[in-house]
Every structure is written in C-alpha cells, then in structure tokens.
Design a protein around this nucleic acid. Structure first.
Lengths: 201, 201
DNA sequence: CAGGAAACGTTGACTAACCGACACCACGAC
DNA sequence: GTCGTGGTGTCGGTTAGTCAACGTTTCCTG
C-alpha cells in the first residue's frame, strides 16, 4: 500500500491533528512512558484502529510532532528574509520575533518535547537553525571591520539563541515573545566591554 | 433508509457537534441571517455536502441546538432530586446551582439563541421548567400555613427564575453561577415585608 | 510461578464523510 | 436585458474511520 495521501483529505488532517494534540496533552499530564495508544485515541475520541492508519506506534507519532515543530520553526526564522537581496542587522529583530511568536503559540508542543528529550530537542534546534541560515545566506564584512568566519559566527549566534529559548521554555514561558526578542536583540547589540561584571559583596 | 441510529457512531457525534459549535460562533459574530451553510461547514472544516446528511437546513440546525439546550437544562434542574422521596426547601439550592452552572458552561449557545429569538427562548424556558417540575412532584403544605395552589406557585417561581436567568445572560454573565444562585435563594427566602423600598431622595 | 488484566497490532465488513459535479436560484453590476 | 457571482440542494464514486473480534505480548499481583 502506497503511503497514500498527504494532507489532501479533510478527514486525515482532522484526525492526525486531533491525535497529535491529544498526545501532547497526555504527555504533559502523565509523562511519555505512561501514555498508551488507548489513552491517545480515547482522549481524541477516535477508534484505536484509526491510530494505526496514520502512525506506526507511539515513537512514530512523537517523531512526527518533533519534525513538524522543527520544520515550522526553521520556516518562521527565515520567512522575514524572503525576497530580500541582502539582510542588514535591523532585519534580525523581526525574524527572531517571528520565531519566538511561533514557539509561544506552540508552547505545549515545545514543553511536551522538552519533557521527553531535553537534549535531543536542543541539539536538533541548533542543527536546524544553523542549517537553514547556512542555506539562505552568507556574510560579507564591512571594510575596516575584523574579518569573521561565518561558520563560527553561526555557532555563536545559534547557540546563544537556542540557549535563550531553552531557558524561556524551562521557566514555562513566563515572559512574552516580544520581551524575549527585545532582550536577545539587546544582547546581540551590546559589546561585552560595555558590561561590567561585579563580584557579589 | 431507516433514520439509522442516533449518536452511536463517533463520526456522527463529532460532525454534528462541530457543525453546531461553528454555527453558534458564527451567529455571535455576524448574526443568524448573515450565516450561510458554506460558512458553517467552512468554519467547522467539513464538506458542504456533509451538512445535508445531518440537517435539513439552517433552521433545522438552530432548532436542534435550541432543543438540546432546553432538554439539558430541564435535566440539570431535576437531577439533584433524583431518588428523593420528598424535597424540602434546602434541596432547592443545589438544583438551582446545577442549572446555573449548566447555563454558564453553555453560555455561547445561550447567547446565540438569545440574539436570534429572545422571546421564544424565554417562553420555552418557562414552559420547559414548569413542565419538568410538574412532572416530578406536587406539594403539600405544613399544617397552619396558608394553602397554596401549586400551579400558581409554579408560575411564580419559574417566572422569577427565568427572569433572573435572562437578566444574567443579558448582562453577559458578569457574575458567577454561585453568586447568582446565592442571590436567587436569598430572594426566595426573604418575605416581601422584610424589604423596605425607599423613594430616591 | 501462574493467571488475569490491560495494552498491543491486525483484520474485515460496514458506513460516514469526502470531493467534484450538476442544475437551480437570487442578486447586483454593467 | 444578461452576465457574472455566490449560495443552495442533490448526486455517485471513492476513501477514511468505525466497530467487533482476533491472537499476542507485557506486566502485575496473589
């Protein structure tokens, strides 16, 4: 049997979404291991057999949720750059904001994935962001500035961004996407020698 | 073709509920007359043809929502009395609370019906409440108390209750079901001659 | 360890929902 | 006038989801 359709039929879209949503809720409530297929289909109000029309097993469903999220995030990150011939520093902020807003609107997905596999999520975020930035552009230094290596710059920036995102999630998204963006952009724009670290008295 | 079953199949339950919910949302957004079948099925994400598998037309759908609500309310009203041989005054409060809680949890339905046909809703509420109380019980006066006519008592009580509910809805359910119950019970228990109406100075 | 419950994974017959197409209206625009 | 444009109601063929049933595995508890 061919893998059949993708999202063409309303019914499949509805069902897959309902199963994913139910799964995420249940993971947050009782933890990944404790969730059964029966739980998922029960919560979503579908027949148990229907699950197997769409997914191989629990891991398969989780993997798809994971992949969906990462794909969407990568897309949100580069969408603001679409059509632009070159990207100046002032275009970074909208892009980061898009990214943070998307995370905020999918915070349950994010938290569920976080509880299941924190380090895998971090690693995949790093890899995805790096990859989609690398695909989309390269850099060129203004004359007089020190020449920077793009690969190193990317490592620096993506690590910092992902670090902030993980912290944001782990503190349960206390602040708004707007505030987080503001802070991150401020950090990017502040040379380290403008900051004074003082020893606690 | 037999009328088939009622709510047996998950699919029919899902679909009917989704269509009803979408319809209610749309009524509140743009008004009953402006809502098309295409709007409803679009919002609910179902094929237009599916609508006609379940409902004859827009009025049919509205009528069903209306009937559902009234049936549920009547049921909520008498459920607390179930199994009791006799009902004393102190059992009224839980019953009213049940009723108000149910309305609160279906406030969108209520508001939608309110905007479509205010007076029909009031009339049907009166009729339904009166009917389900009349079915369930009769009264007996304690010796020494003035002998009251049950039919008149019912008119008095149901009108008062429905009046309070309508006011509650029209002020967009500002207060909680608990508060409304408290107030209504206090009114029932306060003889009119304990209240002093003063002319505004 | 045995026995039983609970979840799994799969099957097959049935049916709701899908989609695209049809003809029919109502209405406003040109 | 008539030409869209947009909503209605209906149809037939196709496909997703339903339910009940099956044997299997897993895991707990007496």
């Amino acid at each position: 049997m061919a893998v059949t359709n993708e999202q063409s039929d309303r019914r499949t879209r509805r069902t897959r979404l309902a199963l994913k949503t139910a799964f995420i809720e249940l993971i947050l409530e009782k933890g990944y291991d404790a969730v059964t297929i029966l739980d998922v289909t029960g919560r979503a109000d579908y027949n148990r057999g229907t699950f197997y029309k769409h997914f191989i097993d629990k891991e398969d469903l989780l993997r798809e949720i994971h992949d969906d999220l990462l794909t969407d995030l990568a897309e949100a990150l580069v969408r603001p750059y679409e059509g632009l011939r070159q990207v100046n520093a002032d275009m970074i902020s909208p892009s980061i904001l898009q990214l943070f807003r998307h995370i905020e609107s999918h915070k349950h997905d994010f938290l569920a994935l976080l509880t299941v596999s924190r380090e895998k999520l971090r690693a995949d975020l790093l890899q995805t962001f790096r990859h989609s930035m690398q695909e989309d552009m390269h850099i060129e230094m203004k004359p007089g500035a020190p020449q920077l290596d793009y690969d190193i710059l990317l490592s620096y920036q993506t690590s910092a961004t992902v670090g902030v995102i993980m912290h944001w999630a782990e503190t349960r998204f206390r602040y708004s996407a707007e505030y987080m963006t503001e802070q991150l952009i401020a950090l990017v724009n502040t040379p380290i020698d403008h900051i004074v670290f003082k020893r606690r008295t």
